[in-house]
Simulated scan of single mutants.
Amino acid sequence: MMANFSDAEREIYGKLADYLIPSWKDRPAATSVGVHRHMLDEVLRIRPDLEAAFQRAIARCPGQDISKELNALAREDNAAWTALTTVTTGGYMMTDEARAAVGYPGQVAPPYDPNETPEYVTNGMLDRVKARGPIFRDTRHLS
């Protein structure tokens, strides 16, 4: 079940998100691309498993002393810290504006010819590995 975030919670999250991803040169800040609005809803729709820990992060970081609050969160509640940073970076990079600003076109499917020999097979890159031969190290005793 998706939580409905209040305007106050979204405002707090926006402050935290802009601290994590501030505006820099031609790159937009997190709130400039809506991570605290529509992207928050979209990320949590895709990753509902992050919602409880994300809500803990927002509750623990009211935005009064963001640096202090985020450092404490990272030290004391790793799951909430991870949820907060995952939701923020994920939402940011899901937007066209952020991807364009960092030069990431998104996932692309390069053409692939299964009958063509890859260059790394013929350019000598693997010669050392072939000359060395197979290596096996039993690691069962390490567990």
Rank of each mutant, 00 (worst) to 15 (best):
M1Y: 04
M2P: 06
M2C: 04
M2S: 14
M2F: 01
A3G: 01
A3D: 07
A3P: 00
N4H: 10
F5W: 14
D7R: 10
D7N: 12
E9F: 01
I12K: 15
Y13F: 14
K15F: 04
L16Y: 03
D18Q: 06
L20E: 12
P22V: 04
S23P: 07
W24P: 00
K25Y: 10
K25C: 09
D26G: 11
R27K: 15
P28W: 01
P28N: 09
P28C: 06
A29R: 04
A29T: 01
V33K: 02
V33L: 05
G34M: 07
V35L: 07
R37E: 15
R37N: 14
H38N: 15
M39S: 12
L40R: 05
L40A: 09
D41Q: 07
V43K: 10
V43Y: 09
R47T: 07
D49R: 04
D49K: 03
A53G: 09
F54G: 03
F54D: 06
F54S: 05
R56T: 12
A57M: 01
A59C: 11
R60N: 09
C61K: 05
C61H: 04
P62G: 09
D65N: 12
D65C: 03
I66L: 07
I66Q: 06
S67K: 12
E69R: 01
E69F: 00
L70V: 05
N71R: 11
N71L: 08
N71S: 12
A72Y: 03
A72M: 08
L73E: 08
L73M: 11
A74T: 07
A74W: 02
R75G: 13
R75Y: 07
E76S: 11
D77E: 12
A79T: 08
W81A: 13
T82Q: 10
T82M: 08
L84E: 11
T85C: 09
V87L: 11
T88W: 06
T89E: 10
T89A: 09
T89H: 05
T89V: 01
G90K: 08
G90V: 07
Y92G: 09
M93E: 12
T95K: 02
T95E: 05
A101F: 07
G103R: 08
Y104V: 05
P105G: 05
P105Y: 00
G106L: 02
G106Q: 04
Q107R: 14
Q107F: 12
V108C: 07
V108G: 08
V108T: 11
A109W: 08
Y112E: 15
D113W: 00
D113M: 05
P114Q: 10
E116L: 13
T117H: 09
P118V: 10
P118Q: 13
P118S: 13
E119L: 08
E119G: 04
Y120Q: 15
Y120V: 15
V121W: 01
V121E: 11
V121N: 01
V121R: 06
T122W: 03
G124M: 09
M125P: 08
D127Y: 01
D127V: 07
V129G: 14
V129E: 15
K130F: 00
K130N: 02
G133C: 08
G133L: 07
P134R: 13
P134H: 10
I135K: 15
I135C: 13
I135F: 10
R137L: 10
H141Q: 12
L142S: 04
S143G: 12
